[in-house]
Design a protein around this nucleic acid. Structure first.
Lengths: 253, 253
DNA sequence: TTTTCATAGTGTATTAAGTACACAATTGTA
DNA sequence: TACAATTGTGTACTTAATACACTATGAAAA
């Protein structure tokens, strides 16, 4: 334990020497028309896009901060969120540092600091989202995963890293409840997996594997009215789904 | 982009409202005599132990900060480090807040702030470490994983979470290079896995599985001199090991 | 009305991985 | 010289992964 004198010195030193800005950046994934989408923001005066983000309030758990930030951008209350990495290179915030450098002296300028950012990814239902610009932006919109624009700061790195984490999650956890409508067909679910993985899967093997997870219920009646053979409709079995979320699929060792 | 007036207001608000302390906590795993060990610190006036940790310097990448912190505690230069989670509940730092609360007014007291901590786990060779107390502690020592003492703050939560992450890593990455001596026998490596997993494994199946990874070289000569049948000595094939570290083992989808 | 095409459902053979289990070899000690 | 402890190796069985082919349905074209 420190003495009072030591505490004074330590506190002074700490304020001088240590990083003190934390931000949150969110990669919001949606799925529409066979395409993975990411929710992005853009200012009018900049060509580059950026991820929805914000800061953590003093009495706020970080997960709540991420939820709050995304509520503001999407209007959603229930969001599947997953913390996946911290981004903390000193030069990652150069962009903002430079942009606002001349306006205010360094000690008064929040954006002159160096930011460490906690990365979250979110899985949301495309149709439930009402994209809402933040105070820095004039545009908030979905972008296709395989047609992503140039991005500010290290945000390209962040969304790619989020995608890696999501792909890893496919190996040991169920995915889909937050991205699919309540009822869906097997081919539709397969398209989601293919969109996330960026590759084609075998229909028959996909079905067997997914069904083996035991997280789907098939409804009695197939979907009618469409062209071609009527596909069966499935929905997630929430009890088993939740269980799989916490327990995971593969035993490994 | 913000106007100057907006920037001033934003900066003032931000300083008031947002969290601004970031720490790093490290769970250092070692392996000795068939036991997983964790490196812990303890002050003399407190009964509770805590994890080695510290803060991020202003121009320092966070991974470097973790390396620096661990160098000071262990004397090691090359450390296998893995960021695994951020801990950011507001009440996680209550302990320090309370301990130093009376000594200094809030605004001067570094420890009155609310801390968000980045969790790292490290895998190190037990024999290479020279445990070194930090400025708050008078004892730095290895503790057995299955005989862990009471811990400060949320550090019990952190090391358990690190262990979960390590166990997950066993499923898709090689482990052992940083925890084993250069040469080792198959039963010795198996004990490491058993210690991490906290359960017994089948000798024969373990050997087949590990060898199938293709990351081990068997030396010509078995270890002599000991009692019982002389076991073969293995060492890690660094080329394949590194490749497996980046690529992972299981295809999954 | 019949044919064709796109899509959906189901099954089977083969290979690879995971699990369970048994016996033989080596070395120091009783 | 038998024994106990430890190590090395092999085999049968089950489960999961992969590759691939046929049948069924419904709308649109012929």
């Amino acid at each position: 334990m420190l003495s009072k004198q030591q505490l004074i010195e330590y506190s002074e030193d700490a304020r001088k020497n240590y990083v003190n800005h934390i931000s949150i950046d969110c990669v919001v994934f949606g799925f529409h028309e066979g395409q993975m989408k990411v929710l992005l923001l853009k200012t009018n005066d900049e060509e580059k896009w950026y991820l929805p983000g914000g800061f953590v309030l003093k009495e706020e758990p970080i997960d709540n901060a991420a939820v709050r930030i995304l509520q503001e951008r999407t209007g959603l209350n229930k969001i599947f969120l997953q913390q996946f990495r911290v981004f903390g290179d000193p030069d990652r915030s150069k962009f903002h540092n430079d942009m606002y450098a001349d306006m205010l002296p360094k000690e008064d300028n929040w954006f002159s600091g160096r930011f460490i950012s906690i990365g979250y990814y979110a899985l949301v239902d495309f149709f439930d989202v009402t994209p809402q610009p933040d105070q820095f932006s004039e545009l908030c919109a979905w972008r296709d995963l395989d047609d992503m624009p140039e991005m500010q700061l290290d945000h390209e790195n962040i969304y790619k890293s989020a995608l890696d984490a999501l792909r890893l999650q496919l190996n040991y956890q169920p995915i889909g409840y937050n991205l699919m409508p309540r009822e869906f067909t097997m081919p539709e679910l397969q398209k989601l997996y293919e969109a996330i993985l960026g590759k084609k899967l075998d229909r028959r093997n996909f079905q067997r594997r997914i069904l083996a997870f035991g997280i789907l219920n098939r409804s009695e009646e197939p979907r009618k009215g469409g062209a071609h053979k009527a596909p069966y409709l499935y929905s997630f079995d929430m009890k088993n789904y939740q269980h799989a979320l916490t327990e995971g699929f593969k035993g490994g060792w």
